[in-house]
């Protein structure tokens, strides 16, 4: 349990296993789960008793809290964010919450400032602007 004690997402302490793993933004999860649901529906007449409660709740959640709906926009956002030397986890927090100001972005992802990757306010602001542009032209 000692690993549990030190866990802190604000400092990017989420365990090696998850740090290296691929994170998913809500909008990406929505695409994956929709696809899976379609497959299940194609295979059987009554898909409702096949999906778990966890699946159902997750799908509802990601539908409600997806910033980007269009698959192309989802891809663009990931591409854009991955150009900024962010950890997977940081990338997805930004993609999910879409902060509007630099101050907000730093409050949401405190680790962005602490790792010395040359993220000055200007670079962050540019990134946020680009994100909102994708949203606007979705």
């Amino acid at each position: 349990m000692s690993g549990e004690e030190e866990e802190n997402a604000a400092e990017l302490k989420i365990g090696d296993e998850f740090l290296k793993a691929k994170c998913l933004m809500n909008c990406e999860v929505s695409l994956i789960l929709d696809h899976k649901l379609e497959q299940l529906q194609a295979m059987s007449d009554d898909p409702s008793n096949q999906v778990s409660q966890v699946f159902e709740k997750s799908l509802q959640y990601v539908k409600r809290f997806s910033r980007y709906k269009n698959p192309d926009a989802v891809r663009q956002v990931r591409e854009l964010l991955s150009r900024h030397q962010l950890a997977e986890f940081e990338l997805c927090v930004l993609g999910n919450l879409c902060p509007e100001t630099v101050e907000e972005a730093i409050a949401m992802v405190p680790s962005i400032k602490s790792r010395g990757r040359g993220h000055d306010d200007e670079a962050i602001e540019k990134m946020l602007n680009d994100m909102s542009l994708i949203k606007k032209f979705e």
Partner: peptide, 29 residues
């Protein structure tokens, strides 16, 4: 696909129940 909440993580959630002590919210499962 797994959902794993972390201490220190910021996320959005839906309020499902309110009582005298506070409220319960749901983020996926």
């Amino acid at each position: 696909v797994v959902f794993r909440p972390f201490k220190g993580e910021i996320l959005e959630a839906t309020v499902t129940m309110v009582n005298k002590m506070g409220f319960f919210a749901e983020a996926g499962p």
